[in-house]
Design a protein around this nucleic acid. Sequence first.
DNA 1: AAAAATATTTAAGCTTACTTAAATATTGTT
DNA 2: AACAATATTTAAGTAAGCTTAAATATTTTT
Lengths: 219, 219
Amino acid sequence: MSIAIENFVKAIYKNGKRDNNDTKPGNIAKKLGISNAAATDMAQKLASKDLLHYEKYQALKLTDKGNKMALNVVRKHRLWESLLFKLFDMSLHDIHREAELLEHQTSDLLANKISEYLGNPKFDPHGDPIPNANGEITTTDTSIALSQTSEGKKYMISRLMSDDKEFFEFCAQHGLKFGNTLFVSKQFNKNKMTQILINNNTILLNEDFTSIIYVNESN
Amino acid sequence: MSIAIENFVKAIYKNGKRDNNDTKPGNIAKKLGISNAAATDMAQKLASKDLLHYEKYQALKLTDKGNKMALNVVRKHRLWESLLFKLFDMSLHDIHREAELLEHQTSDLLANKISEYLGNPKFDPHGDPIPNANGEITTTDTSIALSQTSEGKKYMISRLMSDDKEFFEFCAQHGLKFGNTLFVSKQFNKNKMTQILINNNTILLNEDFTSIIYVNESN
DNA sequence: AAAAATATTTAAGCTTACTTAAATATTGTT
DNA sequence: AACAATATTTAAGTAAGCTTAAATATTTTT
Ligand SMILES: [Mn+2]
Ligand SMILES: [Mn+2]
Ligand SMILES: [Mn+2]
Ligand SMILES: [Mn+2]
């Protein structure tokens, strides 16, 4: 399957998972940087290949076959991120950018070699789960967005759901990193802001950030 | 530049280097598995992009710009082969196959990271030289084909110029490996065969093999 | 030096993955 | 419930990278 198809299927998969947007052509188009017309076109083509269910004006839904393909690409993406992060001194944003391309040029055999070399990791450097060779995610995610946390509790960062360079630079600067702990000192519910204490620094985060930083309650 | 263009330019580069075939569209077409017509078409297109000199019915010649592009792709190819060979238990043929794809999806930055990680190696696992970040090959190659060697002398294998699976399997089986030494016991000039002694085994090689196994005279 | 065999080029056409513009349907607002 | 705003779909068209078939040039053989 082509790069365009792999990216399309993956975008639907991720849209359905994370964003509770409904997965209509327009949303996918926006993510992929193509026109709505192109997305509709592609959706119809993929339906004829049995990769997704298409009904005019309805949300797109992957078939089992489409889902499997998406998970295969996601697996390769996250394995590459893990490898590059381990071997080289590269930022989360940079490894993501490289993985976005490498994911399409990787045989299943190579993916398995990478996985084996890394000790079959279950999570990538963002904290995202890595599907196994059968396209299954066996770990269960108990984490919640920082925006959903309670005042006065301690949490461990489990996932940074972003591809944005500036966000990662901000995170790096303030110690917001997979595995680090923080304390939620105040929730400004009206303003949708969250005040946290991390590394003895107090920071105020708005919803753009608190909705993509995932955490687990800590001791 | 597209994958098709990178492969095309690289094929011209390699054809000019190794094979003393003249580099006409038909030869390139054969290597890339496309029609002669497609190769001519592409050659004309690349001439308009200043990547090669095209004159009807004449051999193709890369411009400086084209040469630089080819070396950049070759660099990435050989760095990937080096990395995969080091990290994973993969055959020379397999690493070549993966590198053939990865070479087109690798930023200069990532290439430099790989090079640095490996200690800026000068040769890949086949013994082929790796161009530096400026697209220069600084090593000089003094090796000769096994077919050109003299009876009664000892040589060290410096290069296995092939992508062929069966050839590599044969090599692996008989200890024909980068760095290993062999003794040329007889040259059958009329039959274009070479008899060598390696690991206490005598093997008779025909020209298909002796022309792609490169060696340096050894003590 | 012809003739025959080969190789190259041109021409016409196809598929993929896009684009913009126009038509149509859905959704949100008054 | 009607109107306006928004989203989706259809239609028409483009560029890249191929194909096969036919025309033309080059190379090899006789
Ligand atoms: Mn990523
Ligand atoms: Mn991608
Ligand atoms: Mn190779
Ligand atoms: Mn290639």
